[in-house]
Design a protein around this nucleic acid. Structure first.
Lengths: 241, 241
DNA sequence: TAAAGAACTGACCGGTCGGTCAGGCGTATT
DNA sequence: AATACGCCTGACCGACCGGTCAGTTCTTTA
């Protein structure tokens, strides 16, 4: 379990100078195996076999198992970081921007399931020092951007000014990542019907994050039963599929 | 990585008939090692060494590595399930109950860090079938209870009736678990100051879940600058330490 | 076409893995 | 006193691990 240490992921979001097609093929199957079975349970022999090459050849392209693993992580970070940034929408209210981010982020998580699992695992298992590197070199940009969006919302008066923008940003990521993580369990609760409908989930979650769960008006508004109170939820057709 | 299968965790929250002191000692050190280094990276030799017994002795008490691991998981589930239930408060508003739950739940997660990590890992890596068993046999009770609390809040008119109670319950768990998971990364963002103050985090998160992040009144309220709008936040002294 | 170097291979290494086995020791029943 | 059984041990097993190496084939360049 070689979690990030001294000089590892620093190549994140840098081009890394193109490796040979054979090397790339190895990297691809390695990504699949690592994310499916974890680091320890993935043997170099298995990587070689899956790639259709000899084990010695794998070691020709990558100095060690750890280096292969780190390269996989780097690529995963580069990809998901890029995917995250491109989900940005310019126009609309800040709430719409955040909602679009939520949607796009979750869609990316699910579409690139294996790689996502890999990154999430890396976050969870990171030591305090490894966490520092992950924070600085992998997630800083995206998270900062998210915090900035929230700040804009506060500056424009759209959002409450008395809450910590980083907290909201964290809860947004949290919402998606934990949904992604717990889906296989969530799906089996009888009263949960959103586990297999990410778009519905993201819409409802955004609604909750925006409006809260308490009855809206401080003064009561009694005869409203269950009809949806026509909340200005998000446009909801910007969601990809 | 032996995730739950055919007949595994069914002993959760059942007494399991007491094993010999030697066996319990082995189980304890195994719990530590498994949660610290993961399944694959923990060898039976290491377990034996840490427990101060021979490897053959470990296999005398537990038929296989997998069985030892499952026993560790069972115990962890039994413990954390119990810890969760006892966090329940009777009196007060539903919001206060949920707030207390959040606080107690996070405190338990952090206090029993290793075991928590183990369970979370199990959730994340669970296959669709393994997830079913986890859902039914480990988390059903606690999650159902949480959903019930939310439903009470809706029935009494304290909460909006147009939101899915399971969704709110899920977001509550999500908030805590992801905080727990990402702390080592979170701590290193310069604009995050709640990573090492779980109580503050839980208070702010509860506030956000209750009231949302949008400016409260639907009608504008222009000249209000930055002063906190005196929101009826949670009592905030019910939080343990 | 010769040379150089990258891509690739099978055979092999020391070490560790999960698991087994034959047997010693202590104690309680008969 | 014999027996039986739970607890425990060191020695050992085949399989597989990450990694190396000498050598062959392919590709590029001069």
């Amino acid at each position: 379990m070689p979690h990030i240490q001294s000089r590892p992921v620093h190549a994140c979001s840098q081009d890394e100078g193109q490796l040979s097609p054979g090397g790339q093929a190895i990297l691809d199957v390695a990504a699949g195996l690592f994310s499916e079975k974890g680091y320890d349970a993935t043997s170099m022999s298995a990587v070689a076999r899956s790639a259709g090459v000899s084990k010695a050849n794998v070691f020709h392209h990558f100095r060690s198992k750890r280096e292969l693993y780190l390269e996989v992580i780097r690529e995963a970070c580069r990809d998901s970081s890029a995917a995250l940034r491109q989900g940005r929408v310019q126009g609309g209210t800040v709430a719409e921007q955040l909602s679009s981010f939520l949607s796009h982020h979750l869609e990316t998580l699910l579409r690139r399931e294996q790689v996502s699992r890999l990154v999430v695992r890396e976050v969870m298992e990171s030591s305090p020092e490894g966490g520092k590197e992950l924070a600085e070199q992998v997630f800083f940009e995206g998270f900062t951007e998210l915090v900035e969006i929230v700040r804009e919302g506060q500056a424009s008066g759209e959002f409450r000014r008395d809450l910590d923008p980083a907290l909201l940003a964290h809860l947004i990521i949290s919402t998606n990542v934990f949904f992604f993580q717990s889906r296989n369990v969530l799906r089996h609760f009888p009263f949960v019907d959103f586990a297999d409908d990410p778009q519905r989930f993201v819409r409802m979650a955004a609604d909750l994050l925006f409006h809260g769960c308490l009855r809206n008006p401080p003064d009561e508004m009694p005869g409203d039963a269950t009809g949806n109170p026509a909340l200005p939820v998000i446009s909801q057709e910007k969601v990809h599929d």
